[in-house]
Design a protein around this nucleic acid. Sequence first.
DNA 1: AGTGTCATGTCAGTTGCTGTCATCAGCATA
DNA 2: TATGCTGATGACAGCAACTGACATGACACT
Lengths: 194, 194
Amino acid sequence: MGRWEPNARGRLEQAALALYGERGFEQTTAAEIAKRAGLTERTFFRYFADKREVLFWGAGALRDLLVNAVAGAPESATPIDAVAAALAAVDAMFGERRDGARQRQRIIAENPELQERELIKMATLASAMADALRRRGVPDTAASLAAEVGIAIFRIAFERWINDTDQRDLSHFIRESLDELKAVTAGSASSFLS
Amino acid sequence: MGRWEPNARGRLEQAALALYGERGFEQTTAAEIAKRAGLTERTFFRYFADKREVLFWGAGALRDLLVNAVAGAPESATPIDAVAAALAAVDAMFGERRDGARQRQRIIAENPELQERELIKMATLASAMADALRRRGVPDTAASLAAEVGIAIFRIAFERWINDTDQRDLSHFIRESLDELKAVTAGSASSFLS
DNA sequence: AGTGTCATGTCAGTTGCTGTCATCAGCATA
DNA sequence: TATGCTGATGACAGCAACTGACATGACACT
């Protein structure tokens, strides 16, 4: 066997998740995480840009998934169609592990710094989807709007899914939110600005 | 005159904005800000919870403005109507000082930590508006959606306004985005989830 | 054997932020 | 006038998040 135990990153991640869950995010120091993983604090920061990033480094893969789904939607699909297809793809990928998602979300919900990081990751996803829509020829503003609205739907659907006591899956809530959105925006609107 | 120069908070804010503008946010230390304001670092942190908050502490007033506008919208107004009215109120309040807004936005755009803080402030606004809508009797999901979508519209309209070279005012872009949203969501949609 | 690479360790330093106690003008009240 | 309280600030010590610089030693390749 090699000089070092294998999978340093994975050990750090596991140790961090365990400690964040036990004591909470703020009450956990980087040195403690490293120690539990059998490494040093310095090495922790070589793998993760900061303490928060442990919970979010998977966002890159999620972004690729969304972008590919948007790009791969049929030519005939409207912007919202393409976004809806992308969200459905997310369900297919992460839909099973609701318990893990719950645990992670509980940790995030307890700490404002983590919520900030989550929001900027979501914004990154929206931005990437908007770019993908523009590559499909969708005009600038429409692309931004469809992507941003799609992420809003995802956030709301995800929250409801996490807190759902039945076994309804994520795409159920996505569909529900999407329909409700259409109902909400169909109203008169903008009359106060004219 | 008193023992202390008056308006410590204002002096700190002014010093911070100046330094953030000159050297950038990261390159400015809390001690430097305090020194320029004729105070100590400790006092800086008594007025502002952290370095970032200097740029965002006005958000409380903005929240009140939005909430009051939503609450004060006529009974007949749909959720989106109420949200649109609230955004129009923001334009009336902050619409004139575009140059200040530009400067502030430039500083934020250059630093991810500041973007995170901006996003959580926006999320707070959305949440407050959603609550205000619920108090009007709007159902749960619809309230969240209308508020979240309203903030998305605001963000996009604000960005376009900041970068606009003509003299079109903020409400112009809000109206534009709102109409575009209606067009975008009116499409078929959700067919991929059925 | 020699040489370079790569993951990790070690150490020292900066900065954001916090807790705690001291100071001292101004005000009230006796 | 004396006394005591209050509220804003300073002074100081300390922790924890990160960063830069350099050292180490197993492994691979030649």
